[in-house]
Design a protein around this nucleic acid. Structure first.
Lengths: 239, 239
DNA sequence: ATTTCTTATAGTTTGTTTGACTACAAGTGT
DNA sequence: ACACTTGTAGTCAAACAAACTATAAGAAAT
């Protein structure tokens, strides 16, 4: 084991509150009016001033990387209890221009209507962008975003994580549109309905849509127990 | 952005050859006589002297983390051109007793018979263990191994990565046993054969098994082109 | 050299799932 | 009352899966 390296770690940590060389960057997905969106921040200071990027920050000495991600999200959006999953580490030597910094990518799914966003201290602006209309991003954030999208596409077919993007009550068609948008495919209504209902994940409510100018659709919520067991055992959705 | 942190990164890197606080640990899988095995090293020095762990090491300043993983594997096993994939970062604050070290987990698949192993400079011994018989591991390596196994189980159903564990030429039954071992299930020979052949991934060779005391089975290799396209598009094997 | 054993490979059967449709129901708005 | 829109149910042929049976090809035993 490399003694020199270990020693320099110890020294470094004595005069710093953060683990220097490792950051977190997080892709936050939302779903609004049939389109998938991501949350970007405009940096207020530093070499990337004015540019857009994924929200992120440094990992503190005494927190796990997962907790660091939760903390960063809480500071940014004001809420806990978010669906959050680590993507992987990104570590090209050139990815950050000033020095060698490895970043750990995360992606989160949130029910958009639940939260009001407040720009954090390090960001001058926070804004939702449609996934297909994101501007140029700093560093390697385009790659991280790309990886997040791929992961979401994969994940959504293995576990019903899509629910984390929808409001509590939703119609089958909304759910189908979510899948269509994420997977970039077109689906057949009757078939989707049949398949999804068969797996008993949805609980029909005693409610219907309101304020629509056509026949109101049944509202559903998902059954947390079945959701949990399906998520754990790694289900397989084919659409 | 945290100025203090960036400054301390720059300073640190001037007097050190490695990115201090980040290591790599790699689960190397092999397949031998129907059982899945992992390669462990016994540490020769340091606080974990004598104990078994996953092979790993520090990331150098000018290499990407993927390249660091390839380098470590090359040093240990003497070969490039290995199937290697990042798992994720592990970063509990207590995972490493001396200081805060984040590690990035990888897992690799190798064709066992292709390589002779040589213990590297930091390890006193290198040994294959059956996955079900691994001894107690240092730090959080048990968790990393656990994650690797889960990932392998998942991955093997989405892409034909299993081939990386088999010799060039193999029989359908060997292939089936590989799946049975990894997924911990029993399968039906005729059904497995039919399913696998249907996807046109296997090329029958003009050869049969030799040295077996029963009817010799057809040998196959896999078609690299179809393998590639299947791996990229994320196929879905259900067995 | 015939039988027996083991494993390879081919086929059958039954029930389920899919994909592409059609048809009808329930509301709105004119 | 009518058209229009979206929701929901049902049909049908083709593909597929799971469980099985049957046969083929050798090697070893008698």
């Amino acid at each position: 084991m490399n003694k020199k390296a270990i020693d320099s770690v110890s020294i470094k940590e004595m005069d710093s509150d953060v683990v220097d060389a490792v950051t977190i960057d997080c892709t936050i997905f939302g779903f609004h009016e049939g389109t998938l969106e991501v949350l970007l921040v405009q940096h207020a200071e530093g070499i990337s001033k004015g540019k857009w990027g994924l929200p992120g920050g440094w990992i503190k000495k005494n927190e796990s990387i997962d907790n660091a991600a939760y903390r960063l999200l809480r500071d940014l959006t004001g809420i806990d209890n978010i669906y959050l999953e680590q993507l992987r580490a990104f570590g090209s030597p050139e990815r950050f221009p000033l020095s060698r910094v490895i970043t750990i990518g995360y992606y989160a799914l949130i029910k958009k209507e639940d939260y009001r966003l407040t720009p954090g201290f390090t960001a001058s602006a926070v804004k939702w962008y449609k996934v297909k209309e994101v501007p140029e991003l700093i560093y390697d954030h385009a790659e991280i975003l790309e990886t997040s999208i791929k992961r979401l596409k994969r994940r959504v077919r293995q576990a019903p994580v899509g629910f984390n993007l929808l409001p509590e009550k939703f119609t089958l068609l909304q759910l189908m549109h979510l899948y269509e948008e994420i997977l970039e495919v077109e689906m057949d209504k009757p078939n989707f309905r049949r398949k999804f209902l068969r797996m008993k994940l949805l609980v029909p409510l005693n409610e219907k849509q309101t304020d629509v100018s056509h026949r109101a659709a049944q509202l559903y919520k998902f059954d947390p127990k079945i959701y949990k067991s399906l998520t754990e055992r790694g289900f397989n959705f084919e659409f």
